[in-house]
Design a protein around this nucleic acid. Structure first.
Lengths: 208, 208
DNA sequence: GTCTATACCTGGATAGAC
DNA sequence: GTCTATCCAGGTATAGAC
């Protein structure tokens, strides 16, 4: 489905390829683009630096594959989950599913998504562009979701949904910086995020 | 007040020092730690690479100064603005001031704060620690703010304020990734962020 | 498909003239 | 205080044996 591999000869070279990508994602995530070296990737992947070039033509090609996989994982997860909902599902319920799925995908594919989020800005423009269509498609998905909700009155119409989208996704994306799976389940975070998003933090006591 | 400069001999070398820091902040922000080279910094600052070492002992020392200045700018701005409020100011009003000030400081010191936010995670642990006290103080500031509000019933008590804090600050910090000063004023963003935070996106129509 | 060896370059850092 | 020149480590990438 999603595949960035041109060589693709032996069927068991796939394994090494995966190991290289996994190692690259892990290093990219925590050291950024410029600090991630091929020698280090090779070491983590358990091979020699030179051997990488059997699978990839350049460092950039590896980075590119990692970045794209990161956004694709989130985009596809959210898109598919939304598509699977019964068509009569309400706007707020859809948004809740989208938030939850976004967080789950984001935090379960940890290294790829984190690398993708954190490194995107510091990578040569040349291949920022490669993953851009995917990123834009994802933005559109959310914009449609929020726009439709607002059009039907499920979201206050004095809000700018475009701004709302960036604030919301920012909040969710930032979780990669601090989330610790051993502390609490992703669903807890999703639940409170949705709760605050829908109802705000101020108690409703009309009597004031 | 805040100063990380040990040499500090000539009074006009301060100027070069600033230019180096400015250049470093700008490059750090958009290329990350590993891609930022001393030669490039020097070029932007209008001097030769070797000359940098008159002002700084190492590349890391420059990075460190930039990172620290970034967090300090936001922390001090918010702290001082809160301190200047009349003591009878309500919890929600204080939170609103904090959000607005955070955004203003964040987006007006663009390069330093952005660099600080984006690069922090990918920098050698050794000097993540140097700015950590400041970062923690800032976390405490917010935690107190939210905790006090909740204790007084200004914030719903079924919310985890610690989680709320990370989600909120994530949302605000993420603005460095997309904010464009020519598009709309910071205050617009702050206003809607606070609005959604307090009241949520769902209309209040009790009749449903 | 992976190794070893190595070419080539660019990076941080130092020395000493001015 | 800044320059030029240079050292050396470490980076990407290639060549060719296995």
């Amino acid at each position: 489905m999603n595949d960035t591999s041109p060589p693709r000869r032996g069927r068991k070279s796939e394994l090494s390829r995966e190991q290289i990508l996994d190692a690259a994602a892990r290093m990219l995530r925590r050291q950024g683009y410029g600090n991630t070296t091929l020698r280090a990737i090779a070491e983590v992947a358990g091979i020699q630096a030179g051997s990488i070039y059997y699978h990839f033509a350049s460092k950039d090609e590896i980075m590119d594959a990692v970045l794209e996989r990161g956004v694709a994982a989130v985009y596809e997860a959210v898109r598919d989950r939304l598509a699977a909902l019964p068509s009569e599902t309400g706007h707020l319920a859809r948004i809740e599913v989208a938030v939850t799925t976004h967080l789950e995908a984001l935090l379960s594919h940890g290294d790829y998504t984190s690398a993708s989020i954190r490194t995107y800005g510091e990578v040569p423009e040349a291949f920022q562009q490669k993953s851009q269509p995917l990123r834009e498609a994802y933005v559109v998905l959310w914009q449609d979701l929020l726009g439709a909700a607002q059009a039907d009155g499920a979201i206050r119409d004095d809000l700018d949904t475009s701004l709302l989208r960036t604030l919301l996704l920012g909040s969710l994306n930032w979780t990669v910086e601090w989330y610790d799976p051993t502390q609490r389940p992703v669903q807890d975070i999703a639940r409170q995020a949705v709760d605050v998003l829908f109802r705000g933090v101020v108690p409703v006591e009309e009597a004031s």
